[in-house]
Simulated scan of single mutants.
Amino acid sequence: MRRSDRLHNCRTFYRPIEAAIRWSGLDRFESRILEVVGARNIPGPEDFPRWPMLRLNVERIFDAMRNRELPYGRAGITCDNPSLLDDGELTVRHVDLRAWMTRFYPSHKPAFLFDDIERQLHPAISVEAVQALLADREALRTQLATYQSELEALRKEIKRQGPSERTLAPRSETTYLNIVGGLLTLLLGKSPSGTPYSSFETLESVISALIAHHEGRPGISERTLWAKFAAAKRQVSAA
């Protein structure tokens, strides 16, 4: 049902037969039904044989009023007076009808009482639950946007940093040089008996082998290796 049609069928209060017509989806036959029913509140058993749900829905509404499950009144004014159940001006308010149907007929969501989103919800899911989920989603979206903004700021900061700002911390640099220097000592050193630890005899041969096996990798160039190895040897010697 279009929104304009739904709003046209909505009122602040209804006669029981008017509510039953909308509940049964017989809106387009309303004038015909009201003409047949007249001042009565409930259609006769033989009035509308093609539409058995109409009478059933009217009886459901009256059953709820008799058992004080659905407030009723006269001309839109709520009044708990059983004598009104036979009054041609008997009415039920829109808000009371909606609350009653939500409680007792949760799988029934006629368009004149519930909007499109509510009609698509599973009966076990309340509007309040959906609203809570939507609020949580918006909070998460806001939090995600904040994190993305912070991440982008960090990326820009790193991009702006020069090479000197990206160097290792002093302690990490010392550790790194000690390890490299120690490895060089083993590669070029000899055991106490004079046996070489490796087949490498000079630092140049070590550098040549590294370039031959790992050429193209960051840091594996003759100039960088000579500089780093020299620094590592000085670090080990100083220690």
Rank of each mutant, 00 (worst) to 15 (best):
R166I: 08
T224F: 05
A227H: 03
E215Q: 12
S221T: 14
G219A: 08
L177P: 01
I158V: 13
P192R: 12
A135N: 11
S172K: 10
R171M: 13
G182H: 02
Q161H: 04
I207Y: 07
T185R: 03
L186G: 11
L140T: 00
A212N: 05
S237T: 10
L144N: 11
R166D: 01
S193P: 05
A153E: 04
I158T: 07
K190S: 14
R223S: 07
P218I: 08
K233I: 07
A169L: 14
V236H: 00
I179C: 08
Q235R: 07
F229P: 03
N178T: 07
R217L: 13
I207V: 12
T142M: 09
L144D: 08
A227R: 04
Q148D: 15
P196Q: 05
R119F: 04
S126Q: 09
D116A: 14
P163W: 08
L187D: 12
Y197R: 11
E150G: 01
S191I: 03
L203F: 00
P163S: 12
H214W: 11
N178H: 03
R155M: 02
L187E: 12
E222H: 15
K233D: 05
E157A: 09
V130N: 13
Q235E: 07
S172L: 09
E157T: 09
R155K: 07
F200V: 05
E215A: 13
Q143A: 15
T146A: 13
G181W: 00
K156M: 05
I207K: 10
L186M: 12
Y197C: 10
P123Q: 03
A169M: 13
L140V: 02
L203V: 00
R234F: 03
L225Y: 09
I179M: 08
T167K: 14
V206K: 02
L203T: 01
R223K: 09
H122L: 15
S164T: 13
K233S: 06
E152Y: 00
E165C: 01
P163L: 13
E204L: 00
F200A: 06
L134S: 15
L186Q: 11
K228S: 10
P163M: 08
I117G: 04
T146G: 07
L134C: 14
L187G: 11
S193A: 15
G181A: 07
T174V: 03
H122C: 15
G181S: 06
A231Y: 02
L203I: 01
Y176R: 09
T174W: 03
A212H: 03
L184C: 11
V180Y: 01
G181I: 02
I211P: 14
